[in-house]
């Protein structure tokens, strides 16, 4: 397995550029068979460059969702090319998401900090990315409490407002207040302040190879 993991993470900014490139190529060339070849090639390419797990994780979701939409479009139009178009479009998006999933929020934040991005943006990004797990837990707890208090179905708008949104937003506010205090008392400050980056993100040869590979592959698929 470690053979496929030349580098743990792609240079974060290159990952963004690669994602955009893949989506744009996939949208522009969606109707062509060469787009499918490009996407298959890109899939293996990004796997080699450290996105192995996320690629594997996205594959079954892509097969189900992409397959469903392709089948629907084939049934609606009766033309095989519209199914191919849908499969390519979804392929592009799922590949971009796979790259996004493999970029750790901490590396992205450190990369942006290194590039002297405003601290408000780096902090916001760090929290927004790391909070999805916490939010999922909070949502589950509120829903469980609804159940135990016999609040009824979440599909009822009145109940959804009262028994779900009110406790949920209350929790968000409380978490936010505690977290803000914690961040501030741990020395975080906005504006022009001195700070360091514990582990710097540097561009490696493999990063350049990764990005060039995507761009060359896409361009070849357009040209040929």
């Amino acid at each position: 397995m470690s053979f496929f993991r030349i580098k743990k993470n792609v240079y974060p900014l290159f990952a963004i550029v690669a994602s955009i490139a893949i989506i744009v190529y996939a949208l522009v060339m969606a109707k062509r068979a060469s787009c499918s070849y490009f996407l298959i090639g890109a899939y293996f390419w990004i796997m080699i460059f450290g996105c192995f797990r996320s690629c594997l994780r996205m594959l079954p979701i892509y097969i189900i969702v992409g397959g469903l939409f392709s089948a629907l479009f084939y049934l609606a139009t009766g033309v095989a090319s519209s199914a191919l178009t849908m499969a390519n479009r979804f392929g592009g998006i799922f590949l971009a998401v796979a790259i996004g999933m493999s970029v750790e929020s901490v590396t992205m934040t450190r990369n942006l900090s290194q590039l002297r991005c405003p601290r408000s943006v780096t902090l916001g990004m760090l929290i927004a990315t790391s909070f999805t797990t916490v939010l999922r837990t909070e949502i589950n707890r509120v829903r469980e409490s609804m159940k135990t208090r016999g609040a009824g179905s979440i599909l009822n708008p009145k109940i959804f407002y009262r028994a779900f949104l009110i406790p949920f937003v209350t929790r968000l506010v409380k978490i936010s207040d505690t977290l803000a205090l914690s961040v501030e008392t741990r020395g975080f400050a906005l504006g022009k302040v001195e700070y360091t980056v514990y582990k710097k993100e540097n561009i490696a040869f493999s990063d350049i190879l990764f990005l060039v590979g995507i761009i060359v592959g896409g361009t070849l698929a357009v040209v040929l």
Binding site: V106, L126, S130, T178, S182, R186, G187, A189, Y198, K199
Partner: peptide, 28 residues
């Protein structure tokens, strides 16, 4: 502060501990 659970921003212990040190501009 109270409620440790609500104060964790990083995924790995090492990064969480480094957070305050980075803010105080300690050398890596």
């Amino acid at each position: 502060l109270q409620n440790a659970d609500e104060q964790i921003v990083h995924k790995i212990v090492e990064d969480e501990i480094a957070f305050g040190c980075e803010n105080l501009a300690f050398a890596p």
